[in-house]
Write a protein that binds this DNA or RNA. Sequence first.
DNA 1: TAGATTAATGTAAGCGCTTTCATTTTTAAC
DNA 2: GTTAAAAATGAAAGCGCTTACATTAATCTA
Lengths: 334, 334
Amino acid sequence: MATIYDVSLLAGVSLATVSRVVNNTGKVSDKTRQKVHDAMAQLDYRPNTIAQSLASNRSNSVGVLVSQLDGPFYGPLMREIESVLRSANKHVIIAAGHSDAAQEKEAVEFLLSRGCDALIVDAEIVTNDYLRKLCQGKTPVVLINRHVEGIADRCVHLDNLKGGLLASRHVLEFGHSRIAYISGPLFKLDARERLQGHKQALAEHGLAFDEALFFEGDFREEGGYEGMATLLDSGEPFSAVVCANDQMASGAIALCLERGLRVPEEISFVGFDDIPFPRYISPKLTTVSNPIQDMGHMAANWVLKEVYGQSDIDFNHRFEPQLVVRESVQRALG
Amino acid sequence: MATIYDVSLLAGVSLATVSRVVNNTGKVSDKTRQKVHDAMAQLDYRPNTIAQSLASNRSNSVGVLVSQLDGPFYGPLMREIESVLRSANKHVIIAAGHSDAAQEKEAVEFLLSRGCDALIVDAEIVTNDYLRKLCQGKTPVVLINRHVEGIADRCVHLDNLKGGLLASRHVLEFGHSRIAYISGPLFKLDARERLQGHKQALAEHGLAFDEALFFEGDFREEGGYEGMATLLDSGEPFSAVVCANDQMASGAIALCLERGLRVPEEISFVGFDDIPFPRYISPKLTTVSNPIQDMGHMAANWVLKEVYGQSDIDFNHRFEPQLVVRESVQRALG
DNA sequence: TAGATTAATGTAAGCGCTTTCATTTTTAAC
DNA sequence: GTTAAAAATGAAAGCGCTTACATTAATCTA
């Protein structure tokens, strides 16, 4: 692989000049520029980005930490971030935290030591203190899906409480009063916030939260399936189920169908996140939108603006969920 | 951020010695090692991986190119690769090709120039020649989901033809003879191979391939939805639909349900890939398994073995699909 | 046309680390 | 107590690039 030195030799100019034309900085006469371009082409020269990073202390890459690489939720987030950044000629290094504190930290360290110019972090586990400290470091950081006191200006998050409120109000307005709730894992902030919204909606309607109608799931189809089975087997009567995300709702509905329960005729369902797939099942899932892509867009543009001075977007910290009414909720009988 | 130099100063040893203890290479006395560890801890020293890469010409990171970052197919692939590599202390840099030749190439260049020790590439568009040339470079490359003559030893792929065969045979054995086919985009090799399997199954049963029952989709829900509408509106009769992947099958089924057609009573469906979601819809989708995770596992282990000398897996190039019978195919009437 | 600007190019010192080779220290062998 | 071999350490030359700063060439001013 040819180095900048080979190019300078062939073109008969200095290293500095080659560097100037490669990076399009400083003044270079057209004649010289042409010579350099020719030499580069002839040698099939491509700059060694590692060396560039080391010398310039800038890597043109931004690190992204998500909790998982698969699943319907993080994919679109990564896609949006990659897309924004790539079109600005920045590159993305992705790491996964796997909902594990040690791995999350390790991933952050990796991205940092990898010389990322900025980090976009969707951290589920690490403490607020850790994140506050992280934000004090010299690498700029945006936090996604999380609101942390003291560094609110670095956070892009969804109003999960409101989302929970919206979902539960909807079934309440349809006359349901025995409402089961399949929650996400409560160590995750968004799961707690959504649950809080649910409780608040219940309270608005003068209803008490009933532990017997509560199940803590895992945000996955399996958890919804299992939760539904537990709820049904408990013998407690209920006519609607609010699920803290669409995946669990899908699992729960699958179980109902298996047991011959009709949805929504016998049981109504609301999900959360509005992922694509449940639009394609029957009944189409009523849910709450989660503008995760918009948040990714915002985070990526923040980086572009703050780190590379390239965007002039107005930073919006808090995104609003919206109720998406489809077919899975029906008026309560009686 | 502390550098190795700071550590050496504080520990009162040379740079070389610090490097030795950081990398655990060469001989260092216990006493010295302890001093260095203390100094590192005290300074919160973390090696600059960029500088390490530049100096050692090894980055401990492997590049992964997929066509998309989202969707139910690539997620699990990335997850598996990341998981294998991470447990061997290697890191993953992911880039997306977006089914576009220029972007695929650019992504490969990026990963290469980024100093990856190896590449795992799921290339859809670039030519075989490009890939052959790529494999001749000094960075080791594994190709996933693709079989290229001349570099077969670098390819990990699925027997798509057999998969197509399996899917179509299944509906044929259930007595269907008017079978519609919703294909993936034909510029993708796997779409072509699956179609070929379909045609072969038809031929086995003495049936001719009928253009009127063919639709070229996009491997996405929307394509299946649209394809189904086109097929239905064409007025051609058919009693079963073979879809080249599960996502299109889901879209197609959604349309049927919207139009009040019962599945599988009136129309049978087979998918391909066995992604998680359609297991949770009704009817549960009969499909063909695609051991994409196993392939990811294999590719990652190949890298571990060939590049880092750490695994001793037996390389398996070709993976076999299997029919997964669930509920979406029913015996043809009459 | 001398003198002052400005443009174009070159020189060389790093960036933080690895690694070869030389040097010093320790251990072993007799 | 020598001496040879082995172990531990250090010195220094890069890895491929960027970037102050210095230098030279070109252009302008009066």
